[in-house]
Write a protein that binds this DNA or RNA. Structure first.
Lengths: 207, 207
DNA sequence: TAGATTGTTAATCGATTAACAATC
DNA sequence: TAGATTGTTAATCGATTAACAATC
């Protein structure tokens, strides 16, 4: 199994390929993809070999074939439904994030504990939290986003687990651990900014 | 200089320490912090030694001293101002992200190219893009967030650079490279979901 | 064929973990 | 002192890079 960094690179290759496809490119070399993704050509070929993806010696890779293989690895060969819990600033923004539908990801519904946030007619609909288990079970949703305050995040994760969610993106400012049978990735705005601050200071002082 | 993973761990230690402080803890062991951050105790001590942070053999670390040292490394000993460019769904959500002010980060202003988005009375104010260079220069802002559509991201980055921004968080769905003298971190919702999808499928098939 | 690019092996690099002497 | 925890060195692990034979 590949690691997180490797899969992020695959996403980048895939995005670069889509751009090349739009430009009617037929073939691409590991060198080209390396430039596009900001890595070395050896890295590109190594990543591909990990997934048994092969090209032609001397002829590089066929853009369409390669795109198809990467799409399959990244689950883009089938519709992926995602739910969002917490319809505050972040949750609402994610529910209306543009461009996801074009890439095979559908935001199925938002959920909130506040009845005032419910709106069954919006697209995607905003539903009461009590309906989460039912919707997730019925539509076999595998992915969820947590966008609630920190004190509610753990509870929401447990609700998602009981409903059958298998992968979670957590935007709440608390580090949730991946429980058995589920993968949780944490995205913390404050940590990201602190990271940036550290490196800005570090490079400044290095000069 | 530490790497990104290490600095993310420092943020986690810092957050755990703040919680311990609120509970009036005076001392903490590497074991405790390891549990809180989901790493090994050896990792914690190794991270600290990289920054010359020392505790007491047998006595662990003083919570207040340790918190202060980590805060300094992460720039939390001084106010950090941040600007946001692009007042769409994501930009607006980030501008009103709660809790940042409590942690020494101030969202100074939002900027948008659309005059209809301008609102000088909102908190933080929403200003026309033309005023970015002036505001950033006058207040010596070092950090910026990009929340514009993909086709505008590179231009916005260049504007930020010319204004003197040194660290950028890019939420636009295109991978921006760090130019000379500036650090860019990309956060791409689609890639994050693709990542999750890959690992969900990979663990499912492994069973 | 000659030349260029892949696919893979080996070498390098860096980060994490284990172990344990130092010491509070 | 005896016991527990640090700080650091060495060992391990894994990922990246370099190199080059295979081959289109």
């Amino acid at each position: 199994m590949a690691n997180r960094s490797c899969v992020i690179r695959l996403s980048r290759y895939k995005n670069a390929l889509n751009r090349l496809k739009a430009l009617n490119f037929v073939r691409v070399f590991s060198d080209n993809l390396a430039d596009a993704a900001g890595v070395t050509a050896a890295q590109v070929r190594k990543d591909f070999s990990l997934f048994g993806i092969t090209g032609n010696r001397r002829g590089g890779y066929r853009v369409d074939e390669l795109a198809e293989q990467l799409n399959k690895i990244l689950g883009k060969d089938q519709l992926q439904e995602v739910i969002v819990v917490g319809i505050g600033n972040i949750g609402r923004a994610l529910l209306h994030y543009p461009g996801l539908d074009k890439s095979g990801i559908r935001l199925a519904a938002g959920f909130d504990i506040d009845p005032g946030k419910v709106n069954r007619d919006s697209q995607p609909p905003a539903l009461p939290l009590e309906e989460l288990v039912d919707v997730v079970g019925r539509r076999e949703v595998k992915l969820g986003v947590i966008a609630v305050p920190d004190y509610a995040a753990q509870q929401v994760l447990e609700l998602m687990l009981s409903a059958g969610i298998r992968g979670v993106l957590n935007f709440a400012p608390i580090c949730l651990k991946s429980p058995e049978g589920c993968i949780v990735h944490n995205i913390n705005l404050e940590s990201e900014l602190e990271n940036l601050i550290y490196f800005v200071n570090a490079t400044e002082n290095a000069q």
